[in-house]
Design a binder for these strands. Structure first.
Lengths: 237, 237, 237, 237
DNA sequence: GATGAATGAGCCTTCATTCAT
DNA sequence: TATGAATGAAGGCTCATTCAT
């Protein structure tokens, strides 16, 4: 697994050598941030810790297989604090999805929107931007993707939010492709399916990179993907 | 969701809402199979029911979010019977993975192996066969894919089996690509990453189809994918 | 543990190497008895097998911690056959208790009854007979003792039967002691407590021998016990 | 059963028989302890309640036959709280064993160690101290003894701890006996077996007292035992 | 702001028991 | 005679959630 992914999760303390009765825990917050002087700083620090731990664990183990206790432990806090800041496990994930949307999806769509050039330029830009972003801070993008898979066929708030976020992406891509087709820059006749394929390839690639971890070179994979996507697998003669 | 996916799961009897008089319970089993006369038939029928229900629910909700009670109910049996045939929830999934491997992966690799022609022919064959198979009986392939995502970063029997199965696929693809490169049929220089991309595209496409359900035309998606994969998105001039 | 104790229990087959689906079992009865020709022989053979397996497992693990499946497996039969012969787990144990009473308690009391001589002679005979019996076929005596401990403070059929059996023993001992005291052969003034002590010492010794197994020499222990019991720990000057 | 034994177990609230209106639940905790003001007090109070209930029930019914629900109910708490303080049923028992060792075994061995005099004095001291202790607070000693019987022939953490604790006792006794034999104070030639017999007599006596309950006079039994042990059953002429 | 205590619902698993064959 | 299939109740354990402090 890429080193970045484990950053937060690996910090967990791991209950010292079988005590007979569970003892009262000794506090420890000092590990990362030096000393959060004001209350506001404390707040932000705690929220950041919890978010990072959640991202890492939800990506590594999935939402259902991760307990709030694990998250709290990884963040150096207690379960109760999660409720203080997020109100519930579901709301915690919803918050993370919002984070991810703001940090990953919005910038991506903004970036693509600003590209001047043909539809293929824009699609290439989409791949490039998303991949680079995904390789540098994979947690947020991966959380989005894995959650979108884990919550398929559901009918809850999370599922709904996921659908909205993905619809934004589909919509943007379809606009680009439609325009490209009108200008003859794109070969395909089926806009919707091509947009789906772009998303599928992008998501599949991230998952694949996450799966194979050290066995694969992220940057090579990215380059392979978008080159292939533009020109196909066959050598251009 | 594609209609096929719900086939088994929707059959569930729903526990007959508080009967006033404790009469003779209606035998749930009679609903579908006419008469499982012998023990062997009974056995096979029950195993089939449980497997189908498990496939449907694991695909729809994921392993961790599916309870054995749900599965048993969907199969018209009780939790205990799952333990009679499989010995634990984990073993149940391992059994399904084996089913999926035999019904999906092995035929795929066999098929590709038998194709005579260039490396691109084989890769195209890979996509075509896998997609058609995946569209006609999606449960098994999807179970494999979703499980492979849900069990990343684990260290249990399921994770290990998944890795083995995927390694078979990577290995076959790399052999093909390596040979293709030697004969100049393939442009890419990076075999491992290209194999990964093929898997990523294939898995991503299945997931995408599963996600968008009725919104997308499976056959069109498939055609789009492997055309694009071979020739790229740009129109061949 | 003394070798005798494990005789039956160790035969269990131990389910062959992780099959995916639990297979249909292949029958095997031939292990011990050559071929039970008539139905009656079959009956007796099966009952003997089940009883032996039960004695061994109840002694080794206790009643509550032993499952009928384990017993059936150890006997080379199936759970159903236990119900065929014994009707329930409780009745099975009751049967064993009856066996034990007939094979261990009755002969012991008969033996002591026939001893001619002083009260101390009879008590010594009690110890000697019980110990030798206990060392040669420990299962039945140990089953009685361990059950009497496991079912203390209960109010079921088993507890009642145990009480009856032990009352027989107390009663016999008290009669002997009372007579001995009248004839000045016994020092103690407290009959009931002395009878209790005899039982306690006898049971405790069997348990101790069972506990320490190979670490202790059964015959030495027996001799130590009744010598001490008669003459005390201090050297007779 | 001796009255002391039921002390805690009989307190159980018994779930208030179907309340018609779902009113404010009466706080069960208030029954005994006045005001567990601070968290630490709450903590200690709960642990004490759970421990006492466990001791009583494990002694009365045995480990395997006692459910955590029963324990929790007897303690006026819920199952979950057991997992909050101890981490499993096994760890709960391990904790009790530690309690018992500290409260019963250690003081006993310390006491015997401090006795100045012959080996027989020490052995007599062993019996006397153990018996008095056992009669005044029987739960802990009985838990140790009954557990040691229930967990024979096992290979788990509990069995191991039991063996360690008993080895401490054997070891201390053997040292005393060995020294006694050298000084001619002890008649027997077989140290190991005599040590075993002492333990057997002591344990057997406790079990016997527990078994016969009100039918027997504990103090008389104790006196009978160690007098007999020292001087034998025969009247010293 | 954050914690430790406690709960209760739900989960996986075991097991005595029933029954048709 | 004996088995394999199936059940249902109960047990141990996890975990999201609440709350007083």
């Amino acid at each position: 697994m890429p080193a970045l992914l484990k950053a937060t999760a690996s910090k967990r303390p791991k209950a010292a050598a079988t005590p007979v009765v569970r003892g009262t825990k000794t506090k420890k917050r000092s590990s990362k941030s030096p000393k959060p002087a004001t209350n506001l700083e404390l707040r932000e620090d705690s929220i950041r810790r919890l978010s990072e731990a959640s991202f890492a664990l939800f990506v590594a183990k999935g939402y259902h297989a991760t307990s709030l206790d694990e998250i709290a432990r990884a963040a150096g806090l207690t379960k109760g604090s999660i409720y203080f800041y997020f109100n519930s496990k579901q709301r915690l994930l919803l918050g993370l999805l919002e984070d991810a949307r703001e940090a990953v999806v919005s910038p991506l769509l903004d970036h693509v929107h600003k590209i001047e050039g043909s539809a293929t330029d824009k699609i290439a830009g989409f791949f490039r931007f998303s991949s680079l972003n995904g390789i540098e801070q994979p947690q947020k993008l991966l959380c989005l993707i894995k959650t979108s898979i884990e919550f398929r066929d559901r009918d809850d708030a999370i599922s709904k939010r996921i659908v909205e976020i993905y619809d934004e992406i589909y919509s943007a891509l379809e606009t680009i492709l439609e325009a490209g087709k009108k200008r003859g820059e794109i070969a395909s006749t089926s806009t919707k399916e091509l947009a789906s394929m772009i998303v599928a390839t992008n998501d599949g690639m991230m998952l694949e990179w996450h799966r194979r971890g050290a066995n694969i070179d992220g940057r090579k994979l990215v380059r392979t993907v978008w080159t292939t996507f533009l020109h196909g697998i066959e050598p251009s003669n």
